[in-house]
């Protein structure tokens, strides 16, 4: 938990890991959620690299997206990462584009 903000860091968004267990207190295994969240950010950075953007965790709750000159935008949820990246990079994100996310052009 972030001691300053008192945030638990498992997230309430549909995509967050706290939603994946049907338990009243899913935070017993907080390290698991942290690890999965870290892995998601690593994957996200692989995907964002061709767009010259990157992403960092922000207290286990939000994400911070950067462009190549260091400008940043906060993405409160995973959904917000994509418009934030588009705004910073000026590029359009389309997962159906065969070259996106490890597709042939970036391989």
């Amino acid at each position: 938990m972030c001691e300053v903000c008192a945030i638990f860091g498992a997230g309430e968004h549909w995509s967050d890991f706290g939603r994946l267990r049907d338990e009243r207190f899913p935070f017993d295994d907080i390290q698991h959620y942290r690890d999965e969240r870290k892995r998601r950010i690593e994957l996200l950075n692989i995907i964002l690299a061709p767009l010259e953007a990157s992403c960092e965790d922000w207290d286990g709750e939000a994400l911070m997206v950067f462009d190549r000159v260091g400008r940043s935008r906060i993405a409160p949820t995973l959904n917000d990462v994509w418009p934030a990246t588009e705004a910073l990079s000026g590029r359009r994100i389309d997962p159906l584009d065969p070259s996106f996310a490890g597709g042939s052009r970036h391989a």
Binding site: R37, R40, V81, L96
Partner: peptide, 28 residues
């Protein structure tokens, strides 16, 4: 789950206006 959520959130971001509905059963 991390890869799946990245994919689905990006898909809905770009094509949500053409995906009237998505529903499914997922094991993670």
């Amino acid at each position: 789950w991390p890869a799946f959520t990245l994919w689905l959130s990006a898909l809905l971001h770009r094509h949500g206006d053409r995906i009237l509905r998505v529903k499914g059963l997922v094991r993670t």
